[in-house]
């Protein structure tokens, strides 16, 4: 029964792995719900700020903020790439890399330089290996990052844009469609493309303190920050959803593996018993 013992050990080890993947699946499911909740909570801020900016823009057509003006020639672009801190989340990051590499290649072919600001461990490791020009990074953002952890990576890009080192900023992240589907997207962040179709039939002529420029400047900066914050929170929801699905299929696979091994084990045991019986019968007949 040497083979039998080996199979038993193997079954036990697969069972242990299955326990781990099951636990990870359940943890991911509960974290996903929390992340979705945070996604929902972050929405009013962006809506309100967009509304105010739309009013301001309509009331002050003569002042064009740099964030709102597209530049004639794009020589260098900045990408804010949002990835996960940890692996074991299916093809989430690979799909994102594929999407962004395609776009990066297009820019590269057109002679446009690329600067990266990366949020999340995984993309940092990946793009560093590729030798991309990473100008800023933020890692270990955890499950519930505050806006303050992201400010550094965002401001690097905003400053570079204002200094005209880069002419466009794009945001690369995953969109949460549902728990089975996540979509990789590359969106233009600055110049801000559209502020939605707000109903602006009548707008307020505000009093500004200290002055309109200052106010618009602060609002736009916060708007961009809130967009990135939202994308980060959404990406975390995607990560947990992808991990949940990946771990579920891993658990299922472990289950099948155990069944198969069990069958082999039973057969081996049966064969051994049959052999023993026939040996005994053979021995008895010989006496």
């Amino acid at each position: 029964m040497a083979a039998g013992k080996e199979i038993r050990t193997k079954i036990a080890s697969v069972k242990n792995t299955q326990k781990i993947t099951k636990a990870m699946e359940m943890v991911a499911a509960s974290k996903m719900r929390k992340a979705q909740e945070r996604m929902r909570m972050a929405r009013p801020y962006a809506d309100k700020i967009r509304n105010v900016i739309a009013h301001l823009g309509a009331a002050n057509p003569e002042y064009k903020h740099p964030y709102l003006v597209a530049r004639a020639e794009v020589k260098r672009v900045g990408l804010v790439i949002i990835s996960t801190d940890r692996g074991l989340c299916g093809g989430l990051n690979s799909n994102l890399y594929r999407e962004v590499l395609g776009r990066m290649k297009d820019w590269d072919d057109a002679g446009v330089g690329i600067d990266l600001s990366i949020i999340g461990n995984k993309a940092v490791a990946y793009f560093r290996r590729l030798g991309a020009n990473i100008v800023a990074q933020t890692t270990h953002i955890g499950d519930a990052p505050g806006l303050d952890t992201l400010i550094g990576a965002i401001k690097v890009m905003l400053d570079a844009y204002l200094a005209e080192d880069i002419d466009e900023v794009h945001l690369v992240s995953n969109q949460f469609v549902n728990s089975m589907t996540q979509r990789s997207t590359v969106e233009q962040l600055i110049p801000v493309q559209s502020l939605g179709d707000e109903d602006l039939k009548h707008y307020w002529d505000y009093i500004y303190e200290p002055d309109a420029r200052e106010v618009l400047d602060q609002l736009l900066r916060r708007y961009v920050e809130s967009l990135i914050y939202q994308a980060v929170v959404e990406n975390i929801a995607c990560e947990q959803a992808a991990r949940m699905v990946a771990m579920k299929s891993a658990s299922d696979n472990a289950g099948t593996l155990i069944e198969e091994l069990q069958l082999i084990y039973n057969k081996a045991r049966q064969a051994a018993i049959t052999q023993e019986i026939s040996e005994i019968v053979g021995g008895a007949a010989a006496v």
């Binding site: 560093r128 020009n133 400053d159």
Partner: peptide, 26 residues
């Protein structure tokens, strides 16, 4: 915060101007 983000990126970054092998990566 900006400095921190930049520093993190600059650590262990050897060849900043290296060309990306898009074909291989893709």
């Amino acid at each position: 915060a900006v400095l921190k983000a930049k520093e993190e990126a600059e650590q262990q970054l050897h060849d900043r101007d290296a060309q990306i092998e898009y074909a291989t990566a893709l």
